[in-house]
Amino acid sequence: MIRVESLVKKFQYRNKNNKIVWRTAVDGLTLDIRQGEVFGLLGPNGAGKTTTIRMLTMLTEPTSGEIFYDNTPIRGHEQEMKQLIGVVPQHINFDQDLTVGENLELHARLHHMGRVERHRRIEELLAYVELADLVNANVRELSGGMKRRLLIARALIHHPRILFLDEPTVALDPQVRRRIWELIRQLAREQVTVLLTTHYIEEAETLCERVAILNKGRLIGLDTPQAFCEQMGRYTVEWDAVDAREYRFFDTRREAADFMAELGGSASIRRSNLEDVFIELTGRREGL
């Protein structure tokens, strides 16, 4: 559904000597995302997740590389490709002069939806994100979490077939977050392709069929959450060393238990999770 080939984005910026230099935000990214898949993009701050999404949504022109939707290159087909996509940006970007309802209406009109269809859909989505009462409120009057919910509702109005979510559940309370997860699963069942970024590892673990881990613009791992954990060792022994918390990974519970016995003291044993993988891949190996 989405194919990305050797995608590169370089930005100019001023370094500390005030010289203009190039920084590579995304460095030769190649990905292939299936239709109806929920795909996660993980990586530390500044890894290039947002830049990748901006290139995929045609907000930023790649320095080099190609992007295909359904085997059609998006370059030169921008208008028809934009019809397919829905975008939840990392930052809140409502029109501050319009009300909640008007913001959604503007979006629907920009996607060429007919009057009846657009009103039905707006009503339905506002009810879903529990903002129906606020339809005539100015967007400035919403709380942070309400804005996030509205952002998600807006992206869905025109029934996109590919949905991009850049940290969609930041600042949402646990109940709402779970509802959004349920919504994303439902969309995937309807064959919508979902690409999301998140810093909540639990979210990626429960939601994503596959995750890609980016670091400094490079793809450093791509697999299912389970496979990642298995490769690293299914069990983790965790203990307090002199200056930091230490981790070791083991393939079997037996080995882990033996190691723990050796250590003694306050060590504990648990199943490895994606967070361990993330820290291992992006933190330690790079030596931070």
């Binding site: 907000l59 208008q79 019809q83 940006p89 501050q96 920009l110």
Partner: peptide
């Protein structure tokens, strides 16, 4: 200008399938 820089609401037009 504010729609472009501060509110970034101009992005709505840029991701929409319009000319």
């Amino acid at each position: 200008h504010a729609e472009r820089i501060y509110h970034k609401s101009l992005e709505e037009y840029l991701v929409a399938p319009i000319c």
